[in-house]
Design a protein around this nucleic acid. Structure first.
Lengths: 217, 217
DNA sequence: TGATATATGTGCATGATTGAACAATCATTT
DNA sequence: AAATGATTGTTCAATCATGCACATATATCA
């Protein structure tokens, strides 16, 4: 349906725009300018206009963008009109936290099943989500037509578990383990590496500090 | 001390390299080539070599890189020789999970104090970390000389809480709320937006799918 | 010792991303 | 109806990041 080629950087910002549009709409705002949006999402206003323009002329010159129509447009683009079910693989500390995380409110995403090998929790329902044994992965994913999974197992089991997931037909993985898992080319992996991000932050702070000191000299 | 200008993209990869070097070292490997590393961290080997070269000639032609010396070099660069204490602000589901997350093992980072407004948990010790009331923020951060914090409060309180943190002298924030908080220019904010990342993954999958279908026509 | 294989460090060309600037266009006011 | 003001959509130049390709240097083996 969509034949438009969207730059990667733009695609990453779309959900961000979408969320702010929801907020604006709830506040009852009818129009919004790229400058206003720019302040809220902290993206240059020209970039916002260009991002939008990939989808056509969505705004009106001298006026701005109509919140409601922009919202409903992005709702379609981002497949927010239908609920997306995802699976959670690995119900440890982080997994449990994600079970309680409300992806649904502004994103229409729902964790509809979870998997683990711990007999103490399999067969139970945690935070409203049934937890199955890993042996049921293939069957459940197929039954529920789920192709996206969140991976939150210990690093040592990351690759082996991922392989099972690919076997079971998973096409997209949000990988919370620090391991860069290798995957078939048909599968997309998004890495969320908490320790690395924190360490990068620290590194930048140190170099900020160093730069400041050398300026003072 | 460091006068080297490192590209942002490189800086983001450093912790990744560092972690794999630790693993290699534990496995007892003595040397490693950029090609080998490339497979593990999934970064082009030429990029790895260039990343390393910003710090000088760390390798030997025809041989590769000495794991131990590379490791100790990066340990210094990344300030891994001293423990970095950080604070956690907001002890909800995600906050609790992070309290249990082991940043220390491969990153020498430790959450040494947490803050919340919930009287049921303030004054207690959770997962080995003392939880203080928000009113003690300034005092504790100053006493413990902490300048980095993880923000995991509900979105509605994100900006107000962040302001308190800046007031208390925080210089780096890892922001888990979906709100783009505004901060003084002296403060660095790293956003980790879980819902957005998941949604971006879904978006890419959809467009992959669309591309495949149009190829089949 | 000489030949061969290996792997670094880097020049270069290409592609992606960004922000400034501005003409084009629309809304609003007089 | 004309003038004014606002804001888009887009061109352009500059910056950043990537991966190829290869000269250069080192190790290894005959």
């Amino acid at each position: 349906m969509e034949k438009i080629k969207i730059p990667k950087a733009t695609a990453k910002r779309l959900p961000l725009y979408y969320r702010y549009l929801i907020i604006l709409n709830e506040e009852g705002k009818e129009k919004v300018s790229s400058t206003e949006l720019s302040e809220a999402v902290q993206v240059d206003s020209a970039s916002i206009r260009r991002d939008f323009s990939y989808f056509g002329a969505l705004g009106k010159r001298g006026y701005g963008y109509d919140v409601k129509s922009l919202l409903s447009f992005f709702k379609k683009i981002l497949n927010q009109d239908t609920l997306t079910n995802v699976a959670l693989v690995g119900v440890g500390n982080l997994g449990r936290a994600l079970l309680n995380y409300n992806f649904k409110r502004s994103n229409n995403i729902r964790i509809s099943c979870a998997f683990d090998i711990n007999q103490d929790i399999t067969g139970r329902i945690l935070s409203g989500v049934p937890v199955y044994d890993m042996s049921e992965l293939k069957q459940q994913l197929s039954d529920q037509q789920i192709s996206i999974a969140i991976l939150t197992v210990p690093s040592e089991q990351a690759q082996a578990t991922a392989n099972q997931m690919f076997e079971a037909g998973i096409k997209g993985v949000m990988n919370f383990t620090p391991i860069r898992i290798s995957a078939p080319s048909t599968v997309r992996v998004q890495n969320v590496d908490l320790a690395t991000e924190l360490q990068t932050l620290i590194y930048f702070l140190e170099s900020d500090e160093a730069a400041k000191e050398s300026n003072e000299e």
